[in-house]
């Protein structure tokens, strides 16, 4: 019984930690953040199983976490309100070519990171961007202003990556 409770508590804790780390962290981790996650994983493993080294215990812990993941994804599909809580909401970083500095600070993203993402999308100038959005899963997507083209020469207005 304890292993199910421990796995549940630690899953919720981990979910809280990853949400607190910020959206961008999920998609681009620094060396420190990567180390933190590795150490966290090790600590979590010890905390969930304690002295239980049985195969049944391991399968039970994994099954509990899988059930929580399934439940969260089901809830996120069913309710927009819950989806915002579970997955977070997109944040507009660039609007009509203007950078939203407050949003950048809140999401702990530097202007250099933003410019790098724009370059990855073939965007030479943020003035060409209608929207630059930090998506819930951590990607930055760009929508170009009407008539603008990226360096790839694509007429697309919906480039994500």
């Amino acid at each position: 019984m304890e292993i199910v409770i421990r796995a549940s508590v630690l899953f919720l804790l981990l979910w809280g930690v990853t949400r607190a780390m910020g959206k961008r962290t999920l998609s681009e981790m620094s060396a420190f953040e990567l180390l933190l996650l590795v150490v966290l994983g090790d600590l979590i493993e010890s905390a969930v199983t304690l002295d239980d080294s049985s195969a049944t215990g391991a399968v039970l812990a994994v099954s509990t976490i899988v059930l929580w993941v399934l439940l969260f994804s089901w809830l996120a599909l069913r309710s927009r309100f819950l989806r915002r809580g579970i997955e977070g909401t997109p944040v507009v970083l660039v609007h009509d070519g203007r950078v939203n500095d407050a949003a950048l600070r809140r999401e702990r993203i530097s202007v250099d990171d933003l410019l790098g993402s724009a370059r990855e999308h073939g965007i030479a100038d943020l003035a060409d961007v209608a929207y630059g959005v930090l998506e819930a899963e951590g990607r930055i997507s760009f929508v170009l202003r009407e008539g603008s083209t990226n360096l790839d020469g694509g007429p697309d207005e919906h480039r994500t990556g």
Partner: peptide
């Protein structure tokens, strides 16, 4: 598969699996 998973976890939570 999800139902089986739920039954297995319920068995664990109620102490049926020790």
């Amino acid at each position: 598969a999800v139902v089986l998973l739920a039954v297995f976890v319920a068995a664990g939570a109620t102490g049926t699996l020790g």
